[in-house]
């Protein structure tokens, strides 16, 4: 199953403070390990909300509002898309995430959310339909 792991913005990330070289290295090592283990599908860092835009929808009205946005700790600073056997495996992996040390001594968090997948949709195929798929695949046509 897939998980979206969201890292949160901090005063530093919102200020566009780049991580120190050594932080880059530890983060890189963490990513390498996930790639080696075959669990990482995608990972990106996100620029400060000052460069972002929000679109508010109210009925038919659409309002475009430029960043920055204020509630720093609720903003996202990056994400990982990973494939794990269970949320527990995802938790164990991300306990190893090298969280940035914040210059103001503040704490941060990351959030793990499961992505909807095949396991969420009821398997309502009839036995006959299942058989048809198996036979079709067995033929290997296409």
């Amino acid at each position: 199953m897939r998980f979206l792991v969201i890292t949160k913005a901090t005063a530093d990330s919102e200020a566009g403070v780049q991580p120190a070289t050594e932080e880059f290295e530890t983060a890189g090592k963490f990513i390498e390990e996930m790639v080696d283990a075959g669990v990482l599908l995608a990972a990106e860092g996100i620029t400060p909300s000052a460069q972002g835009v929000r679109i508010y929808f109210d009925g038919d009205a659409k309002t475009v509002v430029d960043g920055p946005f204020t509630e720093t700790k609720e903003l996202i600073a990056g994400f990982f898309l990973v494939e794990m056997k269970s949320i527990e495996e995802c938790v164990e992996w991300f306990k190893r995430y090298p969280a940035p040390r914040l210059s103001n001594g503040d704490s941060t968090n990351l959030e793990i959310r499961r992505v909807y997948g095949a396991e969420d949709f009821g398997d309502n195929m009839t036995a006959e339909q299942q058989q048809a798929v198996k036979e079709r695949d067995a033929k290997g046509i296409w």
Partner: peptide, 28 residues
């Protein structure tokens, strides 16, 4: 996993994911 030869499920995505993971590990 992709076209199960046994059982009632015609697809078992977990096995596909296991195989994909093994494959990605091998590629590294």
């Amino acid at each position: 996993g992709y076209s199960a030869t046994a059982g009632d499920d015609w697809m078992r995505p977990a096995l596909c994911e296991d195989a994909l993971r093994l494959g990605r590990v091998l590629a590294r």
